[in-house]
């Protein structure tokens, strides 16, 4: 358990990267890229976690002395999620246009840029 969460994060990043490298469909590659990014969410939130601590929101009834988990990593992850969605949108837009111009979305068949 000591490092299991971090290992899962690292695994997600590598699994996603392998997905891109082996991909035969750019849509698939784009989603695999978002798996890489989900590894960063898991890592950040795990780093900020504390056993027996509450969520960092002092709603009514929660005394302000309650120990809470790290809010900074959560703020970073929020930013990260929005970044992920927007980059995915851009990549999908590029993919749609590639399909229109090349008639395929298989990276093996895109043979324009060489050398």
């Amino acid at each position: 358990m000591q490092v299991y969460a971090y290992a899962v994060a690292g695994w997600l990043a590598l699994a996603g990267a392998l997905g891109i490298a082996r991909s035969h469909n750019l849509v698939h590659a784009v989603v695999a890229l978002s798996v890489v990014q989900s590894g960063t969410y898991v890592l950040l939130l795990s780093v900020g976690y504390q056993w027996e601590a509450a969520a960092p929101v002092f709603a009514s009834g929660v005394p302000v002395t309650t120990p809470v988990v790290d809010p900074v990593v959560q703020a970073m992850t929020l930013t990260d999620i929005v970044v992920s969605a927007t980059v995915t949108a851009l990549l999908l837009a590029l993919t749609i246009q590639i399909e229109k111009r090349f008639g395929t979305v298989d990276p093996d068949e895109l043979r324009k840029l060489k050398g």
Binding site: L33, V36, Q37, T40, L43, L91, L94, I98, K112, L113
Partner: peptide, 27 residues
């Protein structure tokens, strides 16, 4: 321009992937 799309896609995938690795380092 087909080249332009393929170039943009390669650029985006590689730079994003590298940025996520950076974020892991930051973590």
């Amino acid at each position: 321009e087909p080249n332009s799309l393929q170039g943009g896609l390669n650029f985006a995938v590689i730079n994003s992937l590298a940025a996520y690795l950076s974020l892991i380092g930051l973590g």
